[in-house]
Design a protein around this nucleic acid. Structure first.
Lengths: 121, 121
DNA sequence: CTCTGTGCAAAAGATTTGCAAGGTG
DNA sequence: CACCTTGCAAATCTTTTGCACAGAG
């Protein structure tokens, strides 16, 4: 793995949030001021391809990147906040139900967080 | 609902595939030659907002649109083909596990279809 | 007559690509 | 020297927006 690749992976893994390429770019720039967005994207794609990180695709906002431990996402449709949740792995049930051999799955749950629910009252 | 909205909904519902905006545009043009891509997008957004259709966001290809019956997706990471599957609704279990009130969820299962699996042998 | 959807052109946003240069082995 | 990553600029692709007009109620 390259120096930039390592740095980007570190940035992602050390963040509690789900960062966009732009945000990662800004943080990377703090350490390596001459770095460019294209380099971020190159490395992000490589990291996703090699399974080190996950890409989260969202409505109306750029992709976000997340460490690749098995977990699922709660997405508030009000404020857009994403929360990691750790549900039991259901791969085996899914394989039984679908009859195919599963590589991975994405489970994104849409809801309204407490604040957003109260706002809409 | 507007005439174009109805037409677009019909195109989506009568297709077995998961169409891109572009594909929908081309089919809409067969019936209504002066229609424009922007109109397609406007209507698609409205239809998604009103819950008539679903948007499927994919890696490296434009969004696709799908009828909004409850179902999940098998996505082959080799050829990109999407297959609808009908699993038991797991909302209730998810609500129990997460403790929040769920509006909806997306479950996308990644695998390799038979052809792609054989190719990689 | 008013209001909303439409066609059109142009813009915006996110991501990718081509190429020359730089660093590493 | 050979190779691969980088920086940079420009391109590409998808989607959105502003505006004037047309059509429906």
């Amino acid at each position: 793995m390259t120096k930039n690749g390592k740095m980007i992976l570190e940035i992602i893994c050390s963040s509690e949030d789900h960062l966009t390429a732009e945000q990662i770019f800004l943080r990377a720039k703090e350490r390596s001021p001459r770095i460019v967005l294209a380099t971020i994207y190159n490395n992000l794609n490589a990291l996703v391809r090699e399974g080190h990180i996950r890409r989260i695709r969202l409505e109306g906002s750029p992709d976000r990147y997340d460490r690749n431990t098995r977990h699922d996402h709660l997405i508030c449709d009000g404020c857009g906040r994403i929360t990691d949740i750790h549900l039991d792995d259901i791969s085996q049930e899914l394989e039984k139900e679908t009859g195919v051999s599963i590589d991975s799955y994405d489970l994104n749950i849409h809801y309204l967080c407490d604040e957003c629910r109260n706002e809409n009252t």
